[in-house]
Amino acid sequence: MTQCWVVDLGCGSGLKTRVIVEAIAASMPTTLFAIDISAAALRQCAFTMSDLTAVKVTSFEGSYLPGLEALRDSRQNDAPLLALFLGSSISQFAVHEIEPFLGQVRALMRPGDAILIGADGIRSLAEMIAQYNDVLGIEAAFDKNALNVVNRTLGGNFDIAALAARAGFVFQAEWRDAKTGFADTLLYCPANNGTTDAHK
């Protein structure tokens, strides 16, 4: 029976991924290889997929390219692979970094594999505020986990426990790259001590 591999580069909760994986799994057994730097996100992604009986989930805690290398080394059949790079993650790269990164990704794939890349358009201020101040605290948890990774792997000294959930972001500026069309928004919020913290 035909099989399919799906690798999610930065799976998060897996809600976007599920839509795609569920559609594929309706036609063939599917293995999802979920990559994320957050162990909590990987657990949530596995839970999101837990009722899909035709989907097997394998997790890799780490960054994109080491995860793809691990997958390359573990693929023992000729089943096709679909790589997912959703959530506009590509827009977090500088323009000059995008082509080399995608070249590295392609080098870890086989002929016949494919990649699906998601990118945002310009969002309204209301949408941006809702994203960064979501009621479930997902963005705050993501940001704190990123700082935990810095502390653990790079010797940082961020006091994670002292960080409070942010609210009341104020619009500062919007930037659009002329070559790629990717947009980025700079927001700031007053800190408790009256200083201003920038957030991208």
Rank of each mutant, 00 (worst) to 15 (best):
S50G: 04
S50M: 13
S50W: 05
D51C: 05
V55R: 05
K56C: 09
T58I: 15
E61K: 12
E61I: 11
E61C: 13
S63T: 10
S63M: 05
S63F: 02
Y64T: 09
Y64E: 01
Y64W: 12
L65D: 04
P66L: 06
P66A: 13
P66N: 14
G67E: 01
G67F: 03
G67K: 01
L68Y: 03
E69W: 03
E69K: 14
E69I: 14
E69H: 14
A70E: 10
A70V: 01
A70H: 14
L71R: 03
L71F: 05
R72S: 09
R72V: 13
D73K: 06
D73S: 13
R75G: 00
R75C: 01
Q76S: 00
N77D: 13
D78N: 13
D78Y: 01
P80V: 14
P80Y: 01
L82P: 00
L82I: 05
L82D: 07
L84R: 01
L84M: 08
L84F: 02
L84T: 08
F85K: 02
F85L: 07
G87T: 11
S88E: 04
S91D: 11
S91W: 01
S91H: 08
S91M: 04
Q92W: 08
Q92Y: 12
A94T: 15
H96N: 07
H96Q: 12
H96T: 12
I98R: 06
I98N: 00
I98G: 05
I98T: 06
E99L: 13
P100R: 11
P100Q: 13
F101N: 05
L102M: 10
L102F: 14
Q104P: 03
Q104K: 06
R106M: 03
R106D: 06
A107Y: 08
A107P: 09
A107T: 12
L108H: 13
M109E: 07
R110M: 07
P111I: 06
G112S: 12
G112C: 11
